[in-house]
Amino acid sequence: MSNQLNDSINSNPEFTLVGIKNEQILEKCLPGDLAMWFFILAELTVFAILFIGFAVSEQLNAEMFIEGKAKLHQISGLINTLTLITSSFFVALALNAMHKGDGKKSAKLLVIAKLVASVYIAVKVWEYMSLFDQNIDIETNTFFTLYFMITFFHLMHVLLGMVILIFIAMKAANNEYNASNISGYESGASYWHMVDMLWIILFPLIYVI
C-alpha cells in the first residue's frame, strides 16, 4: 500500500488524494514549527543590524579596521567556517536518518555534529586567549569592540544550538520522534543551520574583506 502510494506520488505530479495535489503537498512543507521560523527571522534581523553596523564603522575608521583585521588569525576563521559547515552537514544527515525512522543512527550523527562543533568552540576560545595575551580586549578600540561583541554573540548562539542538539539527540536515541511528531527535531535543526548561515556572512566580513 505504502509503496504503491509512493510510486503514484513520484511518477505523477498531478497525483491527488483528498483533493491535494502532489505539488501542493510539497508547497506546504515548512520544516519545523512556524514559531521557530519567526524566531529565526528575528535573529537574522539582529545580526543584519550588527553586520551593517560593522561595515559602516569600517568605512568610518578604515585604518583602525585594517590594523585590527591584521591581528586576527584568518586560518582560525577558516577552520571555524569549515567546522560549522561540516557540523550542519551531519545535522542534515541526522534529520534524514530520523525521517527514515532510524533514531539510533540519527542520535549518533548528532553526536558527531556536536563533536565537530566543539572544535569551533575550542578554536574560538584559543583565538580570544591569544588576543588577550597581546593585551587586546573589548575596550581596545571600535574594531575590537565590534569584533568581540559580534563573535561572542554568535558563540552564544552556537552554545544554545548545542544544548538544543543534545536534547534532540536524547529524544532521537529513545525513538521519541516519528513521522507525525518530528517538528521539534526539524525546528532544532533549522536553528543550527541558521547559526551556520550567520557565520558564513560573519567570516568574510570580519576576516576576509
Binding site: S2, L5, N6, I9, N10, L17, V18, G19, I20, N22, I25, L26, K28, C29, P31, L95, N96, H99, K100, A179, S180, I182
Partner: peptide
Amino acid sequence: DYSLSTYLCDLTFMQTIN
C-alpha cells in the same frame, strides 16, 4: 484531510527532498 496531508507531506518530503 489534515492527517493525510501531513502524512503525504512527510512521505514526499522524504523521497524527493531528503
